[in-house]
Write a protein that binds this DNA or RNA. Sequence first.
DNA 1: ATTTGTTGTCGAACCGATTCGACAAGGACG
DNA 2: CGTCCTTGTCGAATCGGTTCGACAACAAAT
Lengths: 332, 332
Amino acid sequence: MTIGELAKMLNLSKSTVSYALNNGPKPVSPEVKQRVLKAAEEFGFRPNPVARSLANRRSRTIGFIPNALNPATMYSAYAAVFLQSTFSLAHERELHLLLPSGYDPARSDETREHLFNAPVDGFILLLPENLSALRDIIEQGRPMIGIAGKTDGLIPSINADNALGASQAFDHIWSLGHRKIAYLGSTTESDTSIRFNTTETLFSRVHSELEQSWLIRSGANYDPVLVVARELLSQKSIPTAIICVNDLVASAVLRAALELRIRVPEQLSIIGFDDDSVARTMPIPLSTIRQPIPEMAVAAMDGILAQIEGNSFEDQTLATSLIVRETTSAPP
Amino acid sequence: MTIGELAKMLNLSKSTVSYALNNGPKPVSPEVKQRVLKAAEEFGFRPNPVARSLANRRSRTIGFIPNALNPATMYSAYAAVFLQSTFSLAHERELHLLLPSGYDPARSDETREHLFNAPVDGFILLLPENLSALRDIIEQGRPMIGIAGKTDGLIPSINADNALGASQAFDHIWSLGHRKIAYLGSTTESDTSIRFNTTETLFSRVHSELEQSWLIRSGANYDPVLVVARELLSQKSIPTAIICVNDLVASAVLRAALELRIRVPEQLSIIGFDDDSVARTMPIPLSTIRQPIPEMAVAAMDGILAQIEGNSFEDQTLATSLIVRETTSAPP
DNA sequence: ATTTGTTGTCGAACCGATTCGACAAGGACG
DNA sequence: CGTCCTTGTCGAATCGGTTCGACAACAAAT
């Protein structure tokens, strides 16, 4: 059933019916309005959203582009949580969320072509290593906002304060009295390398009081980290605390510790980063640095809507916070 | 830039340009075709996807409806993995995936109204407890397919073989020699209650050989299960093996065991269900029953595309499989 | 040479909504 | 009573594509 058919049944014009249904730009007499509403209800009339979008030049849909190199392994826990927050916000605002196919920086240009076909008012983008693959779309002027990464000023971005987070983790460990401290992380993305560099700076700032320190590029994936952690914890002199680039790494470290019968936190403190779901379901609940993902999602949504309305939007950096659970305590 | 403007620049009609770009229903001379393609490339012409959808009556977009009661907590690990698989498939087929807002069985009718506005060719639905909230949409005749639940024949559905999975878990534990076995689970959804009932049947079938058994409705969430597991494992006579309704429950059980200094698997075997990401990142990798989520996603995608093409589609039940890792062994 | 058929192009209609401009009817004002 | 303004309705244009039907140009068949 189309609006035209409905109008015909009622002996009204399409325009009048449209006005009645939308409290349209023009007024409609009360009786007619009632008649239209009743008939629409009765016949179960649903306006075609595509036609409506064409006329409005608004789709009420936001595109969400995850940052994976390979869509087959697209969601990190981080991306999943971010998506979840964003979806929840979209729901409140009665917007749809679209996961467009076609973004795959590893593949060639034509793959990406399909992204242009996404019927969305704007994109929220979990930032990849570089934006060059998306340059065309950015130049096209569609509203876009980047999350957790560098944009070189091409588009506005929202970031957690990774430097703050790294120092919160270090300060916590330091103030508990630890002086043999290891950091396990990667330096491949901008956020993880900020954490790495900040930690490095903090280590060197206190190096005279530091008994021993390890700064290890272990990567950020479970299996490689497990190997590194087993090795680290098998030496004669081992750290009393390990700061991890994220919670997944922390869970691998905990596993290595348990395998080697090292008691956590009595003999070894572990602190993660992100406050993933794993942080709460680990057998010893993980102390960690919380990334304000829900707040970042709100900022991103506000930012994209502002741009859609034609307003400008500033970059934002949101504070992390320390969450102390059960994997950290004073050194033995 | 619209197709009309492009046509004007080239002194051609809209129709000819459209034919050239789409290898349209009518042929176009080679020279004209080249001219059009070159100009489109040069001016960066991108056909408006909304207009195209309106004309084609196809949006090349599939809606994905998660089953959460509350969109704020929408994704179980299960839903996230399923979404991930589905997205990957959509990507291969150059379809977009839409997460429509408006589905919230806990809220009133008008909330749901927005679902009708989703510009999609069909819906993939992670099944909620009952479909009544979606009856209108089903009756509207839009293609739809349900995952992991009961549909009472209203729409086709794809399920893992939960009865098979439950017996695989039991058989594994039983054949290792365990005779003091507990089952922890819920019976609120159709799949978890199949697992529960199957286990109950198996228990009773071997009851003469069974030394002791527990069949506990612990729920399927982490915190309540943790309480139940601590209690269960604190008694004088405890099970030598615990079968869990899912991997999250298994992780809570493992935590309780470690807290109580019960060695896994030497003193206690644990088996989960789903093969979630947690199964691999637990400090002792979890033996579990794998749900064939990628295969289910393929079946769902095939099913929805078949319906869109106007073909019929049969229900499918896909086999689960046993994955033995390190939480199961012979009893002490 | 006439008929038939194919190829390529164009204008117009269409998809299903929104919204502008025109206009008639009725009320308020001088 | 004539003018002006407001209210309510309609037809037509629009959004940006796709596709049908008509037709001209030309080649092949009779």
